[in-house]
Simulated assay, not measured.
Amino acid sequence: MNTPNPALDVITIGEAMVLFAAQQAGPLDDASSFARTTAGAELNVAIGLARLGLRVGYLTRLGQDLFGRHIAAVLSREGIDRQQVVMDAEHPTGFMLKSRSDDGSDPQIQYFRKGSAASHMQVGELSSAYCASARHLHLTGIFVAVTPSTREVVLELAARSRAAGLSISFDPNLRPALWRSKDEMVASLNQLSTFSDWVLPGLEEGRLLTGRDSVQGIADFYLERGAQGVVVKLGPEGAFYATPTERGHVAGVPVTRVMDTVGAGDGFAVGVISGLLEGLTPAAAAARGNAIGARVVQFPGDADGLPTRAELDALRKA
């Protein structure tokens, strides 16, 4: 079982990419200047948790190139443990382009990740000792879809974490383009969810994965398969939470202007995970998720709006 005083609070695994964000609103084809930052759902969560003072470890492969060195520097700057970050001299770091949308609509995104260093990650790189040094594992449905080898890595990490006594959270974070078929995606992500204590689907994700229309039905699907809790993201309407003994709705946080919707779900996960690890009730953890998600959409970058502990305290007071 997990050690009483683990070295890390949370570990997560995924593909980190360099993001070039357009600086002019409009179609990506017309953008003429870009700002460089980082992207990757799991990386966003790692950054958000680290800014709140949690001890976070990140598992990935980066190319031994300028993009990889940039991401490694960001990990260090954010205080994220890099012991399980492999620098790969043979394969490049992935990157992506994102349009700017000032009207609150979802931006256009173009990925350049095929054959990346992260896509070549192997089970042999996993350290059981490192896994057992943490309290909690956070997973998404993205890295499991990248290649057969990354799928094997994620499932093995989930199994080892379960055996070591870690709690596990899972955000489906659907990326249909990465899968060969809808059926494969649904079967694989539902398999991964069975390792998880807390499942954090969006409403439409939940409907697709469970075949159930209502938030109650979606929650029941995961609770019936062993989850201890489910939080369904409802966007501006807030969130619905359910455990075997309680359930309810937490209102959303009003936002006057949406700058960028990308990363809102990752911010929500930061709030829920940090809240649960700190002993908050499911309702209070969901409320923190709503608050951080609402803050994130008011900033242009994926991780720009993720708050520090002081900024979170200010949000709570507001």
Rank of each mutant, 00 (worst) to 15 (best):
Y58K: 01
F20V: 06
L62C: 06
S32G: 15
A31C: 13
A50C: 06
A72L: 15
Y58S: 05
L62T: 05
A16P: 13
L52P: 06
D30E: 12
V74M: 03
Y58G: 03
L52E: 05
R61C: 11
F20R: 02
A31Q: 08
A41N: 05
V56G: 06
V74N: 02
A16N: 09
T37E: 01
R55D: 13
A25H: 10
F34T: 12
G68R: 01
L49N: 04
L52N: 08
A72I: 01
R36C: 12
P27D: 11
Q24E: 15
R61Y: 06
E42L: 04
A72F: 13
A16T: 14
A46Y: 00
N44T: 02
G40L: 04
G14E: 05
L66N: 14
V56Y: 01
A22Y: 11
A16W: 03
A46V: 09
D65E: 08
L54T: 03
S32D: 06
D65M: 11
D29P: 00
L66R: 14
A72K: 11
M17G: 06
S33T: 15
R36A: 12
Q23W: 07
V45E: 07
R51G: 13
Q24G: 05
G48L: 04
A16Y: 04
G68P: 02
A73M: 07
A72C: 03
Y58H: 03
T38R: 03
R55F: 15
P27E: 10
T38V: 15
A16V: 12
P27G: 09
A46R: 00
Q24L: 10
N44W: 07
A72E: 11
G68A: 12
L49H: 05
G48P: 11
H70M: 03
Q24D: 13
F34R: 11
F20Y: 15
G40R: 02
F34Y: 15
V18T: 12
I71Q: 07
G40K: 03
G63K: 10
R51S: 13
F67I: 02
E15M: 07
V18L: 09
A25E: 13
D29Q: 14
G14K: 04
T37H: 14
L75V: 04
G40V: 00
G40H: 02
A50Q: 07
F34V: 09
A41S: 15
A73S: 15
E42G: 08
T60L: 09
A50P: 01
T38A: 14
G40W: 00
L43D: 02
G63V: 11
Y58T: 11
G40S: 09
A73R: 11
L62R: 04
G68S: 10
L54H: 14
L28A: 12
Q24I: 12
M17F: 05
A35V: 14
G53L: 13
V74G: 01
P27V: 03
N44E: 06
L75Q: 05
